[in-house]
Design a protein around this nucleic acid. Structure first.
Lengths: 217, 217
DNA sequence: TTTATTTTTTAGATTAGTCTAAAATTTTAT
DNA sequence: ATAAAATTTTAGACTAATCTAAAAAATAAA
């Protein structure tokens, strides 16, 4: 069984590697886990000994299939809890992340299967992110982050990353919710901020914000 | 904020002191927390420094009002979660304890208030134990553990302690549920086992079992 | 292609919670 | 009332997860 800390590292590596594909660097992990590179090296050795990651000194780290499965289980739990908090308890979507970060570490296979059933086996969490099934399988439509789209683009918002409460509050205010149609009107050269249209209203958003919005191709 | 370990000590002291009344001994704590006396002494010093307990060397320890409030919050969370697991998710009453032991440490005032509201502000958990309100207040009818009753007693089961799954399974099988009427038919001198009647059926139960059943006076 | 810079790892130290063994104190028994 | 037994505390050590500072390796620049 993984410790809470080990689980958090595995999850961080999963996200940094874009679902277990890419090789991840020590400093990247240190940054997202709010630790120092030296600590990361120590932990990677532990994860490697447990066969959760393949590690090559000075090169980087990659999740094994076992590590990937662990990461997907944690993500499944996180997203099911977020769904519960919003749908059943009436949390606002910007209030759920920190609580779900705690709940995702509860150890009980029975609990998570019963929660899934209680919620009606949802495919998406409140931010539009896909919920892996009990085998870790999930489907995500082809997408791109909004900052990579061209001027003139129009499509639909698939997902909004759930990490920051104030960002989510802002997105809700301008109506940037999963499922909503969106147009990219123009882009500023100097800071890559962009003007977008949602519900016939125009807004100017920074590049940082646009990176957190995933849209259809 | 308390660490998970600190929370568990405070909770253990609360239960051992019978709701914060009695002075608790080092060895008693060591036994219920599955640690050694030396570890308990260390932890008690920490709790004392945080003003959660009043501690006198070689004498014992007692919860302060602050410590009592912390304990009651943890117990409130534990019992609300147990209620949720049984009522909403369909857990059997002997399956909930270990999961609730984890869930009770989730830190979010909002979560627990919303959960309470979702459940309809229940007064009792599935084992018949009272759920403290958000101020830590609760009422428990006058009661005694069954092993302290006299032969010929008849009354109603109030509570069944929730610690052991196999005990709960057994109690469910013989129908020893909160609210049920019960008669004490006879008691064996040599081992204090007793014969009881529930639903017109007679059963012989050990003293250990009888200690875990709380009944009306 | 050698030097400078950046990144990563190693070495050694720290904190929380735990342990064993020994010392101190209290309780029990003679 | 004193000795024996039990309990509690202290002292010193261990593990997991972290840190800083220094050494090693890889990358970038001249």
């Amino acid at each position: 069984m993984l410790s809470l800390t080990e689980e958090n590292y595995v999850k961080a590596i999963y996200h940094l590697s874009e679902s277990g594909e890419k090789v991840v660097l020590t400093n990247e992990i240190a940054e997202t886990t709010n630790t120092k590179a030296a600590s990361v090296t120590d932990m990677i050795k532990k994860l490697s000994a447990k066969n959760l990651v393949a590690y090559e000194k000075y090169y980087g780290v990659q999740l094994t299939s076992k590590g990937k499965a662990e990461a997907l289980l944690i993500i499944r739990k996180h997203r099911l809890w977020e769904t519960f908090l919003v749908q059943s308890l009436g949390f606002a979507w910007d209030e759920v992340h920190d609580v779900a970060e705690q709940l995702e570490h509860i150890q009980s296979a029975l609990l998570i299967e019963k929660l899934d059933s209680f919620l009606g086996y949802p495919k998406m969490d409140p931010h539009g992110e896909p919920i892996p099934d009990h085998k870790g399988k999930f489907k995500m439509q082809p997408h791109r982050s909004l900052d990579q789209q061209h001027v003139g683009y129009h499509g639909v918002i698939i997902t909004v990353k759930d990490s920051d409460a104030s960002l989510l509050k802002y997105l809700e205010k301008i109506g940037a919710l999963p499922g909503k149609k969106l147009k990219l009107i123009s882009r500023q050269e100097f800071d890559n901020s962009m003007e977008i249209e949602i519900n016939k209203n125009k807004f100017s958003i920074s590049r940082e914000v646009s990176k957190n919005i995933l849209v259809t191709l």
